[in-house]
Write a protein that binds this DNA or RNA. Structure first.
Lengths: 235, 235
DNA sequence: TTTTGTATTATGTATGACATAATAAAAATA
DNA sequence: TATTTTTATTATGTCATACATAATACAAAA
């Protein structure tokens, strides 16, 4: 039997650690038992006995689940099932100082993609009250002479409200997570210098379209509104 | 001094655990020291001594960093800095069986947002070779009579290629993470039944636009292409 | 020079102990 | 009785120590 023949017969050996197995075991448990949020799982010691491993291993596996947002462990009560907050979890590793340049730039781009692509959901779910609120925000738009920070706050208020209107909580959380990174990239030397702060479609223009226009119009308007960002990426 | 006055003077007490502090400490270390990928950090025992806590605490903090994708610990060598794979990390908690309905639906929607909003990046970065590859994929489109699974594979191949063309690795990873969830939602009873599988803009139509059209045209075409999905959400 | 064996070492796992905080139960007070 | 205060209880949080295991470096052998 030649070498190749041997290789083909070799199954890759299970190299996973004990903790890996316990983790998988527990995740499966959560899925199968259809445990509701708030239900509690067995105590660490009980799990250790049942699965035949030390409490150390159990703790480490539980810790992983906790980091995945699947459980919350509280003293005395033990661990309870929670609704995993998908994006809340990685917020911590969403640290501009740690991410590499490509990722940072990628995240910058993703925001642009989202805001252009969300048009249909905006039009589907926007209410009169939303429009009023947007107008209110726009009316408080800082003048060009005012401090830079006011502008940032205003930007966040306006665009954040848009995410809110989509009615998609997950999307909103996603934005909240991306925001600091976007801001960092915007102000770092990572992108080309903004040659000129041209004014394209304004916030007010966007609101007008939300009130009287269509998703198609809005997408193009938003694309135009974000032109300065695109210029820094493409030119 | 009344109760309210007292309350206002009370600073919220630091309730964070030892592990929390050590974790923060280590993250800060990573940021400050400008450690390159591949650099290794001190051994667990050394860290324990330096920070004045037990190895248990250190291990738990390191585990968190590991889950955040900041480090990779390997036997003998110790922990080394890694490039955090922002989305790879949460893939594990991206389990359709564990996420609640709202989140699932939200993720379904996000995919639609992304594919409509990515137009500008497609046009900016697409190459002749990409178009050829897309045409190749389209040419292999399964007929309506063929098995359902072929269709799914084809869908994934085509749309996956689009993400690839954007040149945004982070976006691509994001899609890879969302894909199983999207698929799950699509085939679960979570959304309204698809009354009729209408054919709108085809894959071929999209490629034509990529070759000869504009981002604006593409956005509208993609919106139309995804009409069946939108119908299930909105009607 | 390449392979094979050996020693080293840092993480992985196990065990036992105590601290701490959240809860439940009991006791005291109105 | 209802409400507050005290006290036990208990499960997680932390510590310390010991040994297993696997990855690496180094020496020895071919």
């Amino acid at each position: 039997m030649g070498l190749v023949a041997i290789k083909n017969h070799l199954k890759s050996v299970d190299t996973s650690s004990l903790v890996d197995k316990v983790e998988a075991n527990l995740v499966e448990l959560l899925q199968q038992r259809k445990l509701k949020v708030g239900d509690s799982i067995p105590k660490e010691i009980e799990l250790a006995e049942q699965l035949g491993v030390s409490r150390t291993v159990i703790r480490e596996a539980l810790l992983r689940l906790r980091m995945m947002g699947l459980i919350e462990s509280r003293k005395k009560k033990g661990a309870v099932i929670t609704n995993p907050d998908v994006f809340g979890i990685i917020s911590k590793s969403m640290n501009p100082h740690i991410l590499d340049q490509d990722t940072l730039k990628g995240i910058f781009e993703i925001r642009l993609v989202l805001e252009i692509g969300m048009a249909d959901f905006l039009f589907q779910r926007i209410t009169k009250a939303d429009i009023d609120e947007l107008k209110e925000i726009v009316s408080k738009e800082p003048t060009a002479t005012e401090h830079h920070l006011f502008n940032i706050d205003h930007e966040i208020a306006f665009h954040g409200k848009l995410y809110e209107i989509t009615g998609n909580e997950t999307l909103k959380k996603f934005q909240k997570m991306l925001l600091p990174v976007f801001d960092y990239v915007h102000h770092s030397g990572l992108l080309k210098k903004q040659t000129q702060e041209k004014k394209f479609v304004s916030h007010k223009g966007l609101v007008d379209i939300l009130e009287n226009g269509s998703p198609e119009l809005f997408r193009n308007a938003m694309r135009n509104h974000l032109e300065n960002h695109f210029l820094r990426l493409f030119s």
